[in-house]
Design a protein around this nucleic acid. Structure first.
Length: 286
DNA sequence: TCCTAGCCTTTACC
DNA sequence: AGGTAAAGGCTAG
């Protein structure tokens, strides 16, 4: 498929929004829903096998007008550097269920450990699929994780997250909640619903909203984004807040909301895109 | 409303 | 080699 707009597959898969993609040789292999597929980019062309063109366009956000999005968040010289450095990075449209569980598991873990956890979770509780002579696993269903034991989940390395994963799976399975329907609700309302799940706070909810529920105004604040805001946007926050933030690592929910509000007000309806570029820039260039 | 301690495990770095 | 801190927070009180 020939690309008509800017896209960078490597940037999009390596910027910390997805955890189960694996590069083998020239190909990226992934499992999305029940489908296993592989994809590679050569200049302005994408080659893929296992899914159709419409699926690829939807999953990788190729229908988003990236040019317009970039210019809408291009508010200052600092973010401009990040936008240039990672031109073509797109927000992937993940499966909401897998995304929510992934970020519940991600708390207080580095990326390597998160990837390991999710791989184990999938190979223990997902369904095996053969593709290119290799084994892949779908992400386990809510029903499957709801009936998993805490001990079984802990064997996947979840630690204290095991009870959250199990309880959230139970709630979704027993109450027959369709996370997809959250797309139809306004951002703040959808976030209020998400934080009712065990193990889901504001940060985890914002990640699920941005990476799977199409809320582009979501502005997740983790330690890296907090760092960016303190180092480059402190002028936009009250001095007392800046002072408090620099003496402590963790954020109270009030502090979280203040930084989150700043991001959404300053960068606008595509603040989530701004967040992802700033986040990746902070992690890789500093 | 804000703050603190505790939760578990893996990885990176000394 | 073995020890220790850090790693993309949330919950209860």
């Amino acid at each position: 498929m020939h690309l008509e707009a800017s896209f960078d597959l490597d940037f999009s898969l390596c910027c910390g929004q997805v955890f189960r993609w694996k590069k083998i040789g020239e190909w990226w292999y992934g499992v999305v829903g029940a489908k296993v597929f592989k994809i590679q980019q050569v200049d302005d062309d994408l080659y893929f096998q296992g899914v159709g063109e419409a699926f690829v366009k939807n999953y990788f956000g190729l229908n988003d007008d990236l040019k317009q999005i970039s210019s809408s968040v291009d508010k200052d010289a600092y973010i401009r550097k990040a936008l240039r450095r990672f031109e073509g990075l797109r927000i992937v449209r993940q499966d909401p269920w897998e995304c929510l569980i992934s970020f519940i598991c991600a708390t207080c873990k580095n990326i390597a450990a998160i990837e390991l956890m999710l791989r184990k979770l999938s190979s223990s509780f997902g369904e095996k699929k053969r593709f290119d002579e290799m084994d892949f696993y779908t992400f386990p269903s809510p029903e499957k994780l709801a009936s998993a034991t805490i001990a079984g989940l802990k064997e996947c390395g979840l630690g204290y997250r095991a009870k959250y994963v199990q309880a959230t799976a139970k709630k979704i399975f027993e109450e027959k909640i369709e996370l997809e329907t959250f797309k139809n609700r306004p951002y703040l309302e959808a976030r209020r619903l998400l934080v009712e799940f065990p193990g889901v706070g504001l940060k985890v909810a914002d990640c699920a909203l941005l990476f799977s529920l199409e809320k582009m105004e979501s502005f997740p604040v983790d330690v890296w984004v907090k760092r960016v805001v303190l180092n480059h946007y402190a002028d936009h926050l009250p001095g007392v807040l800046v002072k408090k933030l620099s003496t402590r690592d963790s954020l109270s929910s009030g502090e979280y909301k203040k930084i989150n509000d700043f991001g959404r007000n300053y960068f606008g309806p595509y603040a989530g895109y701004a967040q992802e570029y700033l986040y990746h820039y902070e992690r890789t260039e500093h």
